[in-house]
C-alpha cells in the first residue's frame, strides 16, 4: 500500500491523498502555500474515480471489440493541467508540478 509521506518525496509533489472507492477523501498531505486543500482534493478524488470508471468501460469495450488485450483492468488515470499533473492508481493519488513531474515514477510509487 502506498505511503502518503513517501509519495510527497516524488519530484514536484504538492499533495498526496487517499480516497474511498466512491471518491471521498480519507487522508491527505499537502504542501503549505501550494494552493491545495482538503476540499479541492476531495473533489479531485471524485473526478479521478469517475474517470477511472469511464476508462474501465472503454478498456472493456475496446478489448471486446478489437480482441487486443492489455488495457483492462485500468491501473491508473492521470490528468495533465496547465501547471499541475495528477496521477492516481487504486485509491491513492499524487499531485505534482508539471515542470518537475515524473509520471512513470509516480505510477511506480502508487502501484
Amino acid at each position: 500500500m502506498p505511503d502518503l509521506n513517501q509519495l510527497m518525496a516524488l519530484p514536484g509533489a504538492l499533495a498526496s491523498f487517499e480516497f474511498t472507492d466512491k471518491g471521498e477523501l480519507i487522508k491527505s498531505n499537502f504542501t503549505e502555500g501550494g494552493g491545495l486543500d482538503e476540499t479541492a482534493l476531495d473533489l479531485l478524488s471524485h473526478v479521478c474515480v469517475a474517470n477511472t470508471a469511464i476508462a474501465t468501460m472503454q478498456a472493456r469495450g475496446w478489448e471486446n471489440m478489437t480482441g487486443n488485450k492489455g488495457f483492462y483492468p485500468v491501473e491508473g488515470f492521470s490528468m495533465i493541467g496547465l501547471d499541475w499533473t495528477t496521477v492516481t492508481h487504486g485509491q491513492f493519488g499524487v499531485v505534482m508540478e508539471n515542470d518537475k513531474a515524473d509520471i512513470e515514477a509516480a505510477y511506480s510509487a502508487l502501484a
Binding site: N51, A55, Q58, A59, N68, K69, G70, F71, Y72, P73, V74, E75, G76, F77, S78, M79, I80, G81, L82, V87, H89, I103, Y107
Partner: peptide, 11 residues
C-alpha cells in the same frame, strides 16, 4: 486542462 493518461497492464 492539457490532457490525460490512462494506464492499463500492458498499454
Amino acid at each position: 486542462n492539457r490532457g490525460w493518461v490512462v494506464k492499463g497492464p500492458q498499454f
